[in-house]
């Protein structure tokens, strides 16, 4: 957590008057989200007399968020602060891929295959992975989950692919 401005001499695409890009972009995103929420709740009924409609509270919170987002942006312009730290693509990409794969495969393919394959996909998220030990651990974890969830915890999960059941 260093608060030193311009800690790393990253090439900034931000104009000069943005003194704390981290806050500025953060605030901007909140504003965008608030506007989106206002649009998404625009079809809901507002106040009826003195009782709340379905849309009153969501719009209230959205307006609050809009104001706070703007305030964070103002802070980003008026005071010095850190740059946006660098993003890494490898970790987020493969972890998300593993999660997505799990979500789409658990129904048709069952727990055993899906858990093993998701493990291998997630393992690609770091260059430090050594494949032999990864496979061994993946097999062990799959076996552990296949015993833990359905038997020890009594959660009915389908183990094998659908086509094998029939």
């Amino acid at each position: 957590m260093s608060n030193a401005p311009g800690h790393a001499p990253v090439k900034s695409i931000m104009p000069k008057w943005v003194r704390a890009p981290q806050d500025f972009i953060g605030g901007l995103a909140l504003v965008a989200l608030a506007l989106f929420a206002l649009w998404a709740s625009s079809d809901l009924q507002g106040m009826r007399g003195f009782s709340f409609g379905a849309g009153t509270a969501p719009r209230m919170f959205a307006f609050l968020l809009l104001g706070l987002g703007l305030a964070v942006m103002v802070v980003g312009v008026t005071s010095d602060g850190p740059h946006v730290s660098t993003y890494h693509w490898r970790g987020p990409l493969f972890v998300s891929a593993a999660i997505l794969f799990f979500a789409f495969m658990i129904r048709p393919m069952g727990l055993i295959f899906t858990a093993f394959a998701s493990f291998m996909i997630a393992a690609m998220g770091t260059p430090e992975t050594k494949w032999k030990e990864t496979v061994i651990v993946a097999v062990c974890l799959t076996a552990f989950c296949a015993l833990l969830f359905p038997y020890a915890l009594g959660l009915p999960l389908q183990m094998v692919p659908k086509f094998m059941i029939r």
Partner: peptide, 18 residues
Amino acid sequence: YRLMFPSIVVFCSIGIYS
């Protein structure tokens, strides 16, 4: 960590799904 994190990903996924 390289062995720990995929385990957590899978474990959490199963947990949420269940």
